Simulated scan of single mutants.
Amino acid sequence: MHTKPHALTRTGAALALALAALGFTACTTTLPNQNATPAEQRAEINNAADSTLQRLYTAAPGSQELVDRAQGVLIFPEVISGGFIVGAEHGKGVLRVGGQNAGYYSTSAGSFGLQAGAQSRAIVILFMTQEALNDFRNSSGWTAGVDATVAVATVGANGRVDTSTIKEPVVAFALTNAGLMAGVSVEGSKIERIDL
């Protein structure tokens, strides 16, 4: 009877060590950017955002027309997630309105489930209506799925963006190096404006 709590304590300690190690790994992935000046960080985000949009247009035919119709486009070129059982993700991005940079933002979220190692994905969020964009810009901290329902765009059988998601006021795309991610959710992602 007395060995079970001891074994659980050892298991808990091992899990804590694994979490700490993976958390450190995820943090070191983003450390080089922390030493950059604000101007360098803005330039890096802007260049990566341009590349992300080009990847999106290639991976999801029809997405460029959707982006062009959006009132605002929020681009997170690299959202890094890491952890084991309990995970966290973080990234920086830019909001573009009328093709112009309109502010810089950070996204963060926690998750629960079997996962290991650091992974990276790009997230593009489209505000299809002026009201949705205004609600986002006027918030002091906007959470996907709480402050607005976010429809994750999918590619239909014809290989083009599924137009049924276009009816939603907020639409998101998630990309990896392999292409568009299917069955992914951005709900729970907290987005806040940052000074850069």
Rank of each mutant, 00 (worst) to 15 (best):
T25D: 10
V79Q: 08
P61D: 09
E65R: 02
S139L: 09
A132H: 08
G188K: 01
R96V: 03
A172V: 05
L19R: 08
L31Q: 07
N158V: 11
A116G: 14
T129I: 06
S120W: 01
V94G: 03
L196S: 09
K4Y: 00
A153Q: 15
S106L: 10
P77T: 05
A151E: 07
V73Y: 13
L175G: 10
G23K: 03
M128F: 11
R137T: 06
L56Q: 13
F76A: 02
T165E: 07
T52L: 03
F127R: 09
L19G: 08
A48S: 00
L66Y: 09
D147C: 04
R193P: 15
T163R: 03
T165S: 04
L15F: 01
R137P: 02
A157L: 05
P77A: 02
M181R: 13
N33R: 01
T25C: 11
T58Q: 15
V97H: 08
D147Q: 06
A18P: 13
G62N: 11
H90I: 12
R137K: 07
V73I: 10
Y105F: 11
A60L: 07
R69K: 14
G188V: 03
V155I: 14
E168F: 05
I45D: 00
T52A: 09
C27A: 07
A20E: 05
L8H: 07
G141W: 11
D147G: 14
A88G: 15
E44K: 00
A49V: 10
E192L: 04
V170H: 11
L95S: 06
G117A: 10
A172N: 06
D50V: 12
A39L: 09
E65T: 05
I191L: 06
A182G: 12
Q115F: 14
L66M: 14
A178P: 12
F136V: 01
Y57D: 10
A88N: 14
H6Q: 04
V124A: 07
D50A: 13
N101L: 00
L31C: 00
S185T: 02
L95R: 08
L53V: 08
G99H: 07
A157K: 05
V146H: 12
